[in-house]
Amino acid sequence: MTERKMTCIICPRGCRMTVKYENNTLIECKDNFCARGPTYAKNEIAAPTRVLTSTIPTDSKTVPLMPVKTSKAIPKEQLFTAMKLVKTIRAKAPLKCGDVIYKDFMVQGTDLICGRNLKV
């Protein structure tokens, strides 16, 4: 069994939890303020995921970059591969905040989406 400190990253409170686990299975989680803490710890031990945010070039003169994010968290170990894929994508106006710019990004069912409006 392993015991370690883990910071829950789900909300800004950032609880500093003590977690015990064995073979990628959570046994105990302490010092979490709410129930989302143990859920985070469980995923973090088994298969950590993160939302990726980045920017992609646009064809607009006034707004050179479009901020983008993954619609869901993707496996943490894929972040750098995902950045390579991000670098191949361009944004073409018009676009609206929330529009899908790349479907099934890295993981099926996860999209890369636009973070702002872009007028022609």
């Binding site: 939302v51 945010t53 901020p67 994010k69 905040c97 929330g98 973070g115 702002r116 409006n117």
Partner: peptide
């Protein structure tokens, strides 16, 4: 959990 530009867009809209 929004990004900064997304949060701003809610208000600019």
């Amino acid at each position: 959990e929004l990004t900064g530009p997304e949060y701003a867009t809610r208000y600019t809209d």
